[in-house]
Amino acid sequence: MRDEPDRRAGRGAGDDPWRRLPAMTPAGRTTAPGRVRAVADPAAGSDVPPGGRTVAPSPLDPGAALDPHPVHRRLREDFPLTYDPLLRAWVLSRYADVATALTDPRFSHGHRPGDPACARTHTEVDPAELRAVVARTAYVLARRIAGRPQADLVADFCHWLPAGTVAAAVGVPYRDMMRLVRGRAATALAGECGGQIAVREKALASFLGNVLADPDQVAALRDAPSGLVARAWAESLRRDPPVQIAVRRTREDVRVSGGILPGGSSVALLIGAAGRDPERFREPDRFDPLRDDPGQLTYGEGFCPAVLLAGLEAEYALRALFGAMPRLRLADGFRPAPAGLITRAPRTLVVRPNG
């Protein structure tokens, strides 16, 4: 998955995932581009009016950047397969379909850390050394803000920790880490997976926002063992994934909920919608680290140094912040407000370091 901050982000490195395609019906017939999308299989549970056509919402509709969940809900329920002219792609929103598209060989695969294809590009890493680097960087950053009356954890902590750990791991001087590590230089220094710094930054902001928004979670995770923190991290990735939309292409016709995807089609996978699918998760909008039906789609299940690094950053972020600021809490009246279309996270986390 590539970090793509807004609708224009398809113009990054590599092929443009938003290139224009003809609007195709699930049966493979070409239709005129427009806001009308066809659902091929009424038996899939779609509420299709007489005539078989209606207008589906788009994940890029106005207002979706602030609250995409009503759009995601309607797509899951009424339009499990729909063509979106704004994305120039078919859209999948149900968990089962999105999870399949991320791993099925009938779909071309992007670079998602943890997938089997990415494992072949990695060199060996020492987990103990990586843990020490993350811990040291997190504690330095936490101590820098501990004495302040108020701080923004996004600007003062989340923005720096992922870059700082990569810089320390590859031996870049701290004073130079943001200039040398962020952006394209990160890929050259740490590989394509390790270079996804902005994705880890957003994931960390969402994780801290989820924890600090609930005093019960703060109490449970303040001195929690690594296993519980890891479950909370995975739960945050499920509920609030940093990458909301990933793009794949079909290699052949593929049957999914609602119809058949034609071979050679561009497909937009709504990671954010899939993570809150009530057919897969009980109380999907609730942040619950102890849930017995976990599942996240941000990362694959295989070993990847970047996946290990992201988890360590989440764990030591909590340990360092609560260690340096035992009374840390959100500022009075502040609530985390995630925003973004392609990637999503709180843009600010205003806290009172000393309660």
Rank of each mutant, 00 (worst) to 15 (best):
R2F: 02
R2V: 01
D6L: 03
R7D: 15
A13V: 00
A13L: 02
G14T: 00
G14Q: 00
D16L: 10
P17Q: 01
L21G: 13
G28H: 09
T30E: 08
T30A: 07
A32Y: 01
V36G: 07
S46A: 15
S46F: 04
D47E: 11
P49S: 08
G51F: 09
T54P: 02
P59N: 10
A64W: 11
A64P: 13
A65G: 15
L66P: 12
H72Q: 14
R73D: 14
E77V: 03
D84M: 12
L87V: 11
L87N: 14
L87I: 10
L87W: 13
W90F: 14
V91G: 10
Y95R: 11
A99G: 07
T100L: 15
T100R: 15
D104K: 10
F107Y: 12
H111W: 09
P113V: 06
D115I: 01
D115R: 10
D115Y: 06
P116L: 15
C118D: 14
V125E: 05
V125L: 03
D126I: 13
P127N: 12
A132Q: 03
L141N: 06
L141F: 05
R148C: 03
R148V: 02
A155G: 07
D156G: 04
P162K: 06
Y174S: 13
M178H: 05
R179W: 09
V181E: 07
R184I: 02
A186P: 15
E192K: 13
G194C: 11
A198M: 03
F207V: 07
F207Q: 08
F207M: 04
A213Q: 14
Q217T: 02
V218L: 09
L221C: 11
D223Q: 13
A224K: 09
S226I: 12
V229Q: 12
A232H: 03
A232N: 01
S236L: 08
L237G: 02
R239Q: 04
R239P: 00
P241L: 07
I245R: 05
A246V: 05
T250A: 00
D253K: 00
R255M: 08
S257P: 11
G258F: 04
L261P: 03
G264W: 04
S266A: 06
V267N: 00
V267S: 00
A268R: 11
L269G: 04
L270G: 14
G275C: 10
F281D: 14
E283L: 13
P284Y: 13
D285W: 10
L290N: 05
P294Q: 12
P294Y: 11
G295P: 14
Y299W: 11
G300T: 06
G300E: 10
E301R: 10
P305E: 08
E313Q: 07
E313R: 00
E315S: 03
Y316S: 04
A320T: 05
G323S: 09
M325Y: 09
L330M: 07
A339E: 15
L341R: 15
T343M: 08
A345C: 08
A345W: 04
L349G: 07
G355R: 03
G355M: 02
